[in-house]
Structures are given as C-alpha cells and as structure tokens.
Amino acid sequence: MPQVMDKEVKQGVQQDEPIVKYENICKSFGDLEVLKGIDLDIMPGEKVALIGPSGSGKTTIIRMLMTLEEPTSGNIIVNGKNLWKMNKNDHLVRANDKHLRQIRGDIGMVFQHFNLFPHMTILENCTTALIHVKKMEKKEAEERSMKMLEKVGLGDKFDAYPSQLSGGQKQRVAMARALVMRPQVMLFDEVTSALDPELVGEVLEVIRDIAKDGEMAMILVTHEMDFAQEIADRVVFLDNGVIAEEGTPEEVLEKSNNERLQSFLHRFRNGNGV
C-alpha cells in the first residue's frame, strides 16, 4: 500500500486534505458482513450526517474511528496517519494501544446511552480526562469545564451526580465532557434516540450551537432527518453495508431517485422509521 506510506511522510495537514479518510473499509461480526467496502472522506470542519436503516452499519463506521471496533480490512487515515496500522521496521502492522492513543486524541464521541461516569460529579466527569490524559492543572481543567458546562446550560449542576439529572441533561453533560478535550472530529452516535421525545430539543439545540462554531468536523449518526437537513453539509445514506447515496442534504433528502432511500425516507416520515 504505497499511497498509505506516502501520506505518513507528509508533514502537517493542508486545508484541502481530508481530516478523516475511510479507504475500502470492510467489517464483519462473525459471519455477518456489516460493511462492504466504505470509502468516505471528511474534510476539516465538515458536518456529515450518516443515515440509514438500523443494521446498515452506520454506528460501526464511527465506532471504528473511535477505536472501539477494529475494521476487518481497509484503512482509516486520520490527519494523514493510518489509525489501525502502524509502521514497524518498514512494515505495516496492527496498531498497538500506544499508537491508537496517539491518533484518537483528535477524536471525541458522544454516545447514545450517555455513558457518564456515575461515581463522579458532573464537573469531575468533565475534568478527569483533562487532568489525567492531557495532564492539565486541576484548576485550569475546572475553569475550562465550568465554561463548557455553562455553554450547555448546566453550570449550576456542576456539583450533582449523573443519577440526579434528566436524560437530556445527561446528554448535554456528555457533550461538554467530550468538548472540553477540543477534538478536531466529534462523533455523535444516535445521541437523541435514548431520550424521551420532550427532551430531544434541548440536546439538538446544543449540537446546533456547536455546529455554528464551525471549527470542528462532526459526524452524526442520526434518525432526526429534519435536523440532519438543517445542519449537515453532506448527508450519507448507508444501505446493506455500502454507501448508497451521498451529497448535499437537498440532493439526498429531496432530489434523490434511489428507490431504497425513497422507501427509507417514506417510512420515516410516516413516523415509524426505526
């Protein structure tokens, strides 16, 4: 794979270089082939929405980028560096933990089920990685975290424990926790689908806010079509493990002739999408 080696040699990232590049990614769980050759580029600051029926592999795509799942074959390039493979004596070998850690520092993730640390306060949830991973002074970490908590509208809750919060509040904390790390790419894994309907709005509001700042690339796996249309620069429709349609929200959600996509959207707009 000479082109991969080439990329590793390049120093720095130009503005027109993708920050994340999926190259022919396949993934199987046992006999089940979930992804069958995905090619996808994400540009710095770009907002990409991944949509598709459940089981189409959209969550797997972002989980592989977060190093929670290893691809069966193919390459994921982050900032010009191969994520799951590393160079050892001029050979590409399976990445070890240290290599993964060096690269995934630029990536953050928000989960469907929040995954807040229940034994820590809201503030500690935010500061713990700053202190232990980024080796930041406690005071500085707390200042940065408090600012972020205020931004998501939970400044007054810094002392509470996750169990004392509503689902929507938990998810906003989870976003603050990921944001304080200042990732270049942020992954959202169906962040509203575990929430009661009346709590979805407050979470989308925060995402909208983050998106406006513009700096950070975002990949959203979502079932909120209207929201995807509103904030995404690009919408990617996954079906049966391949990218079946891709383009601007308008192109994909309104003008596409893809039959599978049509029926998917149709089912959704009739309110029983999942």
Binding site: N115, A129, H132, R177, A178, M181
Partner: peptide
C-alpha cells in the same frame, strides 16, 4: 459503555481501570 467512554476520552488501559 463505561470503558468505551473512557476510551473516547483517550485514557490508557491502566487509567480506565483505575479511574473508571
């Protein structure tokens, strides 16, 4: 999910065990 969240915050395996 706890381990996954810790991974997403780029903790080492040892930190994941100790802190989370």
């Amino acid at each position: 999910g706890q381990r996954e969240a810790a991974t997403a915050l780029n903790m080492t395996r040892f930190q994941q065990m100790r802190l989370v």
